[in-house]
């Protein structure tokens, strides 16, 4: 059974790069955080995709089944999802704080204000 083969990994890479592009090229800070989120979820998808086993079922012990999907990526990603939300919250708090200090969340306007001050 060769299909889907490496298809999942390629799509994940394109999604990751879309997130990466948003982070490095867009000026709006909220949009940057969303881009980071997309990057993160793509990595989660990649991990969970690797743990799938042909003909396996969810990793819960049942007498009728002997093949289970790998529980290790699930455990790692459960931790990563929660940590991801924690970092997102911190990033958004910084955005709110920046908005209070500068009155804008566009990075070029912030830069212009900082140059005007110095």
């Amino acid at each position: 059974m060769e299909f889907p083969g490496h298809f999942n990994y390629w799509i994940v890479i394109v999604m990751m790069m879309a997130g990466f592009y948003v982070v490095i090229s867009q000026g709006n800070l909220v949009k940057k955080v969303v881009g980071l989120n997309i990057f993160q979820v793509s990595v989660f998808v990649f991990y969970i995709s690797m743990g799938k086993v042909d003909g396996g079922t969810a990793p819960i012990i049942h007498p009728d089944w002997t093949t289970y999907t790998n529980p290790v990526p699930s455990v790692l990603i459960l931790t990563a999802i929660v940590v991801g939300v924690a970092t997102t919250a911190l990033a958004l708090a910084l955005v709110v704080r920046i908005r209070r200090a500068f009155g804008t969340i566009e990075d070029d306007e912030i830069e212009a204000q900082e140059e005007a001050q110095s």
Partner: peptide
Amino acid sequence: WDSVDVSFTEASVGAGISTVL
């Protein structure tokens, strides 16, 4: 992909709390 635990964490924490924040 048979990872049900991750699925409900993603739906509640990833899609829910992140979006609200």
